[in-house]
Design a binder for these strands. Structure first.
Length: 286
DNA sequence: GCGACAG
DNA sequence: ATCTTGTCGC
């Protein structure tokens, strides 16, 4: 048999995958559909979920697929599941979903069967959403399969639609001082493909306790932070619109979402529910 | 040597 | 994704 975890798939398979992405992309809903998405402090949001797949050291086939649901805004774990799985498809940039989404969708399905009352209202997914080669990353894919609003959370910037780690981009990242500060990632198409939300380790180490660095307990509200943008001078942005995930409308699930960069350590950040700190040089600051 | 092709 | 190495705090 072949080793799913490795080897590049034949061009024929990639064509099929592209066709599937195009088919499902038509069901994406990339606008707010839930009241909590636009409420000042997300009032109405009670459960936030997160999914991820972690691998066994030198193994690209065996991995742990996990789904966790937290209460909001308390952020207490109310549901958690980790399941060892055998990946069937290799990782191919632009097609991450075909490798991981089956197991993520199954995790959501099991939750629906066992504890439907704990179904999250939004799901954070490792990987990109609409910031993708064909505008349909794993977050979008899972959203369609589960009918849940999903937010893509990536650790590295996928340079598509004109997005690049230019000096301009790096400058904007450097402006992300306050925890939770963000700026929109606007592609050449004019679409906001995501929000970068980073805390520079250098800044923190050099400015602890200095003016400009908000004291603990004085941070702005999450919602307020999301709407913060670098000082005037940057090019894009007045879209006061945050960038929460969406929901589905007609047919099967749907929703899109935005990806983002994040600190290098463990997980990354998210457009909306961005909290995580972590530190260290990141793929964006670099 | 460096960058890029999510994880 | 995972591997590394170094630094700092407990």
């Amino acid at each position: 048999m072949a080793a799913p975890g490795a080897g590049a798939p034949p061009e024929e398979t990639l064509s099929l995958w592209k066709r599937e992405q195009a088919r499902l992309k038509a069901r994406v809903v990339d606008w707010d559909t839930e009241a909590w998405q636009r409420n000042p402090d997300f009032s109405g949001l009670q459960r936030v979920g997160g999914v991820d797949v972690s691998f066994v050291k030198g193994d690209s086939v065996n991995a742990c697929a996990s789904l966790v649901v937290l209460s909001y805004p308390e952020l207490k774990v109310v549901y958690e599941e980790c399941r060892m799985v055998n990946l069937k498809a290799p990782y191919v940039s632009g097609f991450l979903a075909f490798r991981e989404v089956p197991f993520l969708a199954e995790a959501v399905q099991r939750l629906q069967e066992k504890e439907p009352s704990l179904m999250p209202q939004v799901l954070l997914v490792d990987g990109n959403g609409v910031l993708h080669q064909r505008g349909f990353g794993v977050a979008c894919h899972l959203g369609i399969l589960t009918d849940l609003p999903c937010v893509g959370v990536a650790k590295k910037l996928l340079q598509v639609d004109g997005l690049e780690k230019s000096d301009q981009h790096k400058e904007k990242v450097r402006c992300l001082r306050a925890a939770g500060a963000t700026f929109p990632l606007v592609g050449d198409s004019g679409t906001i493909l995501g929000m970068a939300d980073i805390r520079s380790r250098e800044y923190i180490r050099r400015n602890q306790g200095l003016p400009g660095a908000p004291a603990l307990g004085q941070e702005r509200t999450l919602k307020a932070q999301w709407q913060e943008v670098c000082p005037p001078g940057g090019s894009a942005e007045p879209t006061d619109k945050g960038r929460p995930p969406e929901h589905l409308g007609p047919g099967p699930g749907a929703d899109p979402d935005a990806p983002t960069q994040a600190p290098r350590d463990s997980e990354a950040e998210t457009g909306p529910v961005g909290v995580g700190p972590r530190e260290g040089p990141c793929a964006i600051c670099e």
